[in-house]
């Protein structure tokens, strides 16, 4: 297998990619090529994991300029003669993946959550049909761009033998102006790491009930998560708490799900939980059919009751 190049603009994700690349190459991270862009800290970090780091230092290169980053990676992929580029499947990485694949003439898959090697073929595992099914797919091109879901692989550990090389690419001046970067408000909760999740769906009708739900979560030692509309439409909770296809894929031991109908884009984010409890007034809600314990009841009554009982 010709070389593998990894790139993410986020340090932790880059380390995950490094680990995945090592597994693919059936070696340790030594010899795996990693790119850092305008980030000497990340270059050092990657090198400390044994990677052969190519550090691009060019102030004209904006991470926000997908076209320019894709073009830089294409040039590096050709200079270094790799056949696989691994990217992270966060928003930045997904946007980049398609563009790089196009200009480098590669096949591409994103949101890949598992990799398998079978008879020399590299198989990618990812959700399709909105999460209803899990497909095993293969890119048949020689060149492949694969974006890996955050958290699907553990970060690479420390290793000797890393090295940092300077890298040079030629890019045109950017056609895009970054006017402003606004940090997103919201706490830095990590629902993926929680052992227990209390998930708020649209069946929770009163925003006031959120404080009771927080009490319930506290009593259980749980984090509060939610379905997408609760964050995106109602803005009751931050987007980092969304469970599902466009949110987080969570595997808690216990998920207490309050008033979620259970469409695939949601369930894909919770179906690997250990125990699932669904509370819903609609007996036929799809969520109930994939729960261990089902309580058919009105949340207006159940939430105060649970809060009281657990207090």
């Amino acid at each position: 297998m010709a070389g593998i190049l990894v790139y993410s603009n986020k340090g932790t994700l880059a380390l995950e990619l490094l680990n995945a690349a090592a597994a693919l190459a059936r070696v340790n991270s030594q010899g795996i090529k990693a790119v850092s862009i305008n980030n000497s800290g990340m270059a050092a970090d990657l090198a400390a994991r044994g990677a052969e780091v190519y550090a691009l230092d060019n102030e004209a290169l904006l991470p926000a300029d997908t076209a320019a980053i894709a073009e830089s990676l294409r040039q590096l992929a050709e200079q270094l003669d790799v056949s696989i580029v691994l990217l992270s499947s966060d928003r930045r990485g997904k946007e980049l993946a398609g563009r790089l694949a196009q200009i480098w003439r590669a096949g591409c898959l994103t949101d890949v959550k598992g990799l398998q090697s079978e008879n020399g073929a590299l198989l990618c595992i990812r959700n399709v049909l909105g999460g209803a099914t899990v497909a095993t797919q293969q890119i048949v091109n020689d060149r492949q761009v694969i974006a890996l879901s955050p958290g699907a692989f553990a970060p690479a550990g420390e290793l000797d033998g890393g090295i940092i090389n300077p890298a040079v690419v030629e890019i045109k001046p950017s056609a895009l102006k970054l006017l402003e970067v606004r940090e997103k408000a919201g706490d830095s909760v990590d629902i993926e790491a929680a052992d227990i999740l209390v998930v708020v769906g649209q069946g929770v009708e009163n925003q006031q009930d959120l404080s009771l739900i927080q009490q319930i979560a506290k009593a259980l030692g749980a984090e509060v998560a939610c379905s997408k509309p609760v964050a995106s439409d109602k803005k009751w909770l931050g987007e980092e708490r969304i469970v599902g296809l466009s949110g987080k894929i969570c595997k808690p031991q216990l998920a207490l799900i309050l008033g979620v109908s259970g469409q695939v884009q949601f369930t894909v984010g919770i179906r690997e939980a250990g125990t699932i409890v669904s509370i819903n007034s609609d007996e036929k809600a799809f969520m109930n059919s994939m729960a261990d314990y089902v309580l058919v009841a009105d949340l207006k009554d159940v939430i105060p009751e649970l809060a009281k009982q657990l207090a």
Binding site: T66, A67, A70, K94, E95, L96, A97, G98, R99, L100, A101, Q102, I103, C108, L109, T110, D111, N127, V128, G130, L245, S246
Partner: peptide, 11 residues
């Protein structure tokens, strides 16, 4: 839901 087609067309 792969978010690729738009980027490819732009490319």
């Amino acid at each position: 839901y792969s978010g690729q087609v738009g980027s490819r067309v732009a490319g």
